[in-house]
Design a protein around this nucleic acid. Structure first.
Lengths: 332, 332
DNA sequence: TTGTAAGCGTTATCAC
DNA sequence: GTGATAACGCTTACAA
């Protein structure tokens, strides 16, 4: 019942272990008839190489960890950010025939396990999605000699190469569009201050408004729909004359839409709303949501691509920034 | 730069490899002062055990694969089914200190890789979510001696233990509710015929209607919103007098809602709609969607729980069925 | 309680 | 081309 080993295949084929190993690994330096024999024995016995043994000697595992520093609940809320990243990453890894190992790291225990797992040689490289605060793990891995690429500029100084979308440009487009269409009191629903995406988008919003001598009106959410709804109520309380809102995520924008409807404000006539992400749902809100599209899937592909280059021994850019795009639908 | 080995720790602590191994694995049979020394050496060198080496001898990996026989695109559409499963599974595995390895198997190449990966001893056990058709992989793994648990009754004969929700009961509740509230021409938007959930829900629908001498009106989708929209148009074309629809997924129900609005039918006044899943979005459709709630997260937990029991050498029930619940909101 | 030594199943380096 | 043989880093009888 236990799995056959190289040894057993060798015996059956009447050759040495070394030869079987060569055949299994596709070496061309084996005589055709012998290769035949070996392959037959492999098939008959249902031989599959033991990866632990192999990686013990090769020092490779051909698998890559994607660490999502979030609880599963958060990763799979109906925010499509993480799914998009995962999708992009798995496409790129599949093409390179690497196995993706997804790690949801939402608790201290999970963090410890992830650290041991990645430093313990289970994977050849590590990808981080959406690092919270100044997580020391990426740096630690780098020092341990494990290739790492992060999604999003790490908070704090860091040597770790990263890939991000053009947060600044996206926000600038959105807010300028609101200004250009005559909006005068533009609030924002910001993301959490411990995430770069939250910080960057808020900074960008503030800068644009400052540049045109308008004041910032800020409420803070955590990228969820509920937080967006609450933040919108807050904004309306703070400034009833508000005529536009930029929400740092589509989910929060959706929540804002609900709050506005409850408050009896018409969208976009009285208040314009622009989100960020362009998740699929944005087309289905009522009315359909204008938003800043970020190429999430491509972000994932690029992330994986950079890591693969590192694994191949190539140099990579310390930072790569992908473009965003303003998508105007009906909310603003 | 290469990672320190047990040997190096042993030298530094002035003891043997065996002793270090004992300390690292938490054996109590080591004198306290020596344990201290070893721990210090471990910390100083930043030692982390090499998992390949360990699992080569222990024949365990402490990781579990969750195979999703879908493309990443499909898994992370905004259907919350897979995310819920993943969430439940990762909670249960986290509690047992096992590492979850998520495998998206949406292409033949990915399937081959998954087969090699799981039979190659990378994981101690395998979980399958939503098996398509009569996939032979679960059986194959079972024969290889690797513990397997499936989500959903496998199509075709199978020895593999599974966990499912009460599809029948859920559908029965929904359709009876429609009948009880006076609906007379009840159509259904079925799921894909190669998935058990699709087949089971359609069968259940047919049975209830047959029992009350009403005829079935069926259109087939593939669980996506778009397919639901198309199927609804189909149903309206087939039977303009339709006064209710049971959709085999919330996403398809959402698509149906759009199609109904476009066709100028009021929901629920003219046409009632009931979905299946109770994904978060169901509360946010317009009007909020009535649906059959299935305990997806608990399904994931149970799935993992059964596998953990198998790994512990216990016997498990060949089938486990979790209850569903009808949630009435405003569409029917 | 601690150390010695024999594997675990591969790959890689040699000779032949 | 093919076959011994030595690692790879760890756990675990068995000895001491």
């Amino acid at each position: 019942m236990s799995r056959p080993t190289l040894e057993q295949v060798a015996r059956r084929a009447g050759v040495s272990r070394a030869t079987v190993s060569r055949v299994v690994n596709g070496s061309t330096r084996v005589a055709a008839p012998i290769r035949e024999q070996v392959n037959r024995a492999v098939a008959e016995l249902g031989y599959v190489p033991n990866y632990a043994a192999r990686s013990l000697v090769t020092q490779r595992t051909d698998s890559i960890a994607l660490i999502l520093p979030e609880t599963a609940t958060r990763v799979f809320s109906d925010d499509q950010f993480f799914p998009g990243i995962i999708r992009g990453v798995s496409q790129a890894l599949e093409a390179a025939d690497k196995q993706l190992v997804l790690m949801l790291v939402g608790s201290p225990a999970a963090r410890t396990r992830a650290e041991r797992y990645t430093t313990g040689g289970h994977v050849d490289g590590v990808l981080f999605a959406s690092v919270h605060g100044a997580d020391p793990l990426p740096e630690l891995l780098l020092r341990t000699g494990i290739p790492v690429v992060c999604n999003g500029r790490p908070l704090g100084r860091s040597e770790v190469p990263y890939v991000d979308v053009d947060q600044n440009g996206g926000v600038a487009h959105a807010v300028r569009h609101l200004l250009d269409s005559g909006r005068r009191r533009i609030g924002t629903i910001a993301g959490p201050p411990d995430m770069v995406a939250g910080v960057d988008r808020l900074d960008a919003y503030r800068k644009i408004l400052a540049d045109s001598d308008r004041r910032s009106i800020v409420a803070v959410g955590d990228f969820t729909r509920e937080s967006g709804e609450a933040a919108m109520r807050q904004l309306l309380a703070d400034d009833p004359g508000l005529d536009a809102v930029f929400a740092a995520s589509d989910l929060m924008a959706h929540g804002a839409l609900r709050a506005l409807r409850e408050a009896g404000r018409r969208v976009p006539e009285e208040v314009a709303v622009i989100g960020f992400d362009d998740i699929e749902m944005a087309r289905y809100t009522d009315p359909p949501l204008s938003t800043v599209r970020q190429p999430i899937e491509r972000l994932g592909q690029t992330l994986a691509g950079q890591l693969l280059r590192l694994l191949a021994g190539e140099e990579v850019e310390p930072a790569l920034v992908l473009p965003t795009e303003l998508v105007i639908r009906e909310t603003g």
